[in-house]
Design a protein around this nucleic acid. Structure first.
Length: 356
DNA sequence: TATCCACCGGAATTTATGGAAG
DNA sequence: CTTCCATAAATTCCGGTGGATA
């Protein structure tokens, strides 16, 4: 039975990060430069697939350097997704308690930031893949005492969009590329969560390894699977988590993650997703577009948004793949799509509207 | 085999929108 | 208020690819 649900929450900060020793060392060295005469930490790029602990590592590093060196470093985390230059800088300002308010002009934001900084500050720019312009990086790097910790999925793609002079700041030791965990590492992580969130007794290592293996080294999936599996074991009256609990727990965990992914997307994605899902199996590009065009008038009359063209639809379909909602295979005219979990359905687009 | 057609996705270009300036 | 501007989103354009047809 789960005694401490907080252990399985997204924002839980563990006491240690097994399997990330080398990365922590590099991270702490970069942050520790705030304690030198420069009074500013090194800029850093943190990259890796989703769910492997990029955000957690950043938080851990900041906590640790504050605790171990007694350094006064202020920090704030900003999610870049869907925000522009002004919005991001305002969030940074508010996060660092700068004198930034409604009336502050965008042009004055950098000055306000500079004026309010009296000790080293670190801005964590999360979800950096969608950071639209490099203008934000340029502006923030102009502020002395302030450094950036950028988080993204694909470092090559991210670096390619950063202009040349800034690119060098995020290379070599200033780029930490996190990979998925090994089964042994993730098992150790799960063991700690088990002890803190479930029961004092040590769980069977084999079961934890099974979860780690099924989660393919993705910590978020593994932790959520452990949570669901434990709940299922309790409901089913088992003393211990069984293989079956793990398999069903994995499904539940994936289902939850996908539902929350779909909810975060706008209307067009929902329309396309529901068309793919209603196909009940693979659907070719040609038929997908035909259905969209046949249904668009009816489906979109409930929304302010207008239907989009074919090229834009492909972009949305790519996003659905990135969000683990749809898979695609084949090239050219051969390409086809399929919903990964047909149980995940949109609460925005009514499936009744899709009936041909 | 040669030719045509449709789809994919990168890149360039245009359009829409929201905020700031006058 | 209107005009101007910056940015994100959508469209247009195009080379690559694969299936169909003769």
């Amino acid at each position: 039975m789960i005694t401490n649900p907080a252990v399985f929450e997204e924002g839980w900060l563990p006491r240690s990060l097994p399997g990330r020793e080398a990365e922590i060392k590099t991270l702490l060295r970069a942050l520790d430069r705030a304690n030198t005469e420069e009074g500013q930490a090194d800029d850093l790029l943190l990259s890796g697939p989703s769910g492997v602990g990029k955000t957690t590592l950043a938080r851990y590093g900041l906590e640790t350097v504050r605790r171990e060196t007694g350094a006064e470093i202020s920090s704030t985390r900003v999610t870049c997704l869907g925000h522009n230059y002004g919005a991001i800088l305002r969030k940074v300002g508010k996060g660092l308690d700068a004198d930034v308010h409604e009336g502050t002009r965008t042009a004055d934001l950098v000055d306000e930031l500079q004026a309010s900084i009296d000790k080293p500050a670190v801005v964590v720019l999360d979800e950096g893949d969608d950071l639209p312009e490099t203008e934000v990086l340029r502006a923030l790097s102009d502020v002395s005492g302030l450094s950036m910790l950028c988080i993204c999925h694909d470092p090559d793609d991210w670096l390619a969009r950063v202009d040349e002079p800034h690119r060098e700041r995020f290379r070599g030791d200033n780029h930490l590329a996190l990979s998925r965990y090994s089964v042994s590492e993730l098992s150790t992580i799960l063991e700690a969560r088990y002890r803190q969130g479930l029961s004092q007794s040590s769980p069977p290592r084999r079961r934890l390894e099974q979860i780690a293996d099924r989660a393919a080294g993705v910590a978020r999936t593994g932790i959520q699977t452990l949570r669901s599996a434990a709940e299922l074991a309790w409901e089913r009256g088992h003393d211990e988590i069984t293989t079956e609990d793990v398999e069903d727990g994995l499904e539940e965990a994936r289902h939850r993650i996908r539902e929350s992914n779909l909810r975060s997307l706008p209307v067009h994605h929902h329309v396309l997703y529901e068309i793919v899902r209603s196909a009940d199996g693979w659907i070719g590009g040609r038929e997908l577009h035909n259905r969209y065009e046949r249904l668009q008038e009816r489906v979109y009359q409930n929304f302010t948004r207008q239907p989009i063209g074919r090229r834009a639809r492909r972009t949305k379909l790519q996003k659905l793949q990135d969000y683990d909602l749809v898979e695609a295979e084949g090239q050219g005219t051969n390409r086809r799509y399929r919903a990964l979990d047909s149980g995940v359905q949109s609460d925005v687009v009514d499936e009744e509207l899709l009936v041909v």
